[in-house]
Design a protein around this nucleic acid. Structure first.
Lengths: 165, 165
DNA sequence: GCGGTATAGTTGTCGCGTCAACCAATGCGG
DNA sequence: CCGCATTGGTTGACGCGACAACTATACCGC
């Protein structure tokens, strides 16, 4: 199956690191999801959707832009948007200038929901990831993530790597 | 909802890092899944299951142990094991000493499947994560992951933090 | 301004994972 | 030994996300 002529393997240090990375990738999202479900009755992705809207101009975004910022496919976002709309957290309407476009707008209830949920979410992130990292750790970590991102997100879909100092 | 009295927030550096970590967590698993699905017709989790069995004594493990090593719930593993058994990659049978226990054993076909898929998987991991990290990056990365793991995996379910040098 | 193509979203179907209910075997207190 | 709780696994129902098919609007050449 498309085997390389000279199959390489991870050395001991890389394997040690890889096992840990897999554990973090497996456990951290579940933890964030749990916290938000329990405290705010929101999926992490639902929270992310509302949070992105809350930071946008007029608290509104085109579905496509929202999908890009949340790293979601358009169908996925469409489903989630319907549920969030049913719960009264956002509205969807056609764009005046382009009839194909749908713009999602955060409602007042949605805004309050984000404001109420954000601190608990931030607290979870800080406690689990950043509280025990000193500045050197933090910088090294970010630099490594940037290196990885260059491969995993070659087209810079998130717009994260453009402003590297 | 259970707000702390003094809500904290991520500073700029932490936020920069967090956005990148989220991107990696969102994109890397999808990438590994794609590669294995395409090249080996296996889910990343199916591959992990077979790989763990391949490293165990007699290429056999109790379902509970296998679940722990793959970070899966028992129901999830049970479903996957049925599919893998249907495809002839593993067998399940009762344990002689304890009638409640089921032991999963890798078949010859399953062994060959792992051997055939492993190089492509390793190659993907190396190219996307480790090839561009020098030794200092690697060590710093592992250290940070260990720090994070101490929070997200407090009970050391993976048995990764016991042997830290 | 009319056909053809590209773009933006939505809807339906299917597969996987979670949760709860369930079944089977063990161990243990009397 | 005999309830009865505990442990190990499986099964079924439901929900979310991926993929494909579909609708509708806009753009483009002529």
């Amino acid at each position: 199956m498309d085997d390389d002529a000279s199959p390489r393997w991870l050395d001991d240090e890389q394997m040690r690191s890889w096992l840990r990375l897999q554990a973090v990738i497996g456990l951290l999202p579940a933890l964030l999801d749990q916290q938000l479900r329990h405290d705010a009755d929101l999926t992490h992705f639902e929270y992310l959707t509302l949070a992105m809207l809350s930071q946008a101009d007029d608290r509104s975004l085109r579905m496509s832009d929202l999908a890009r910022r949340t790293n979601a496919t358009l169908p996925r976002l469409s489903h989630v948007a319907r549920r969030l709309e049913d719960r009264g957290f956002l509205r969807r309407g056609p764009a005046p200038d382009d009839g194909r476009v749908t713009v999602a707008t955060l409602t007042e209830a949605g805004w309050h929901k984000v404001v109420a949920s954000a601190p608990g979410h931030a607290r979870t992130v800080l406690e689990n990831v950043y509280d025990d990292l000193d500045r050197d750790d933090l910088h090294a970590f970010t630099r490594v993530l940037d290196t990885v991102l260059a491969h995993v997100d070659p087209h810079d879909s998130f717009g994260l790597r453009t402003g590297r100092p």
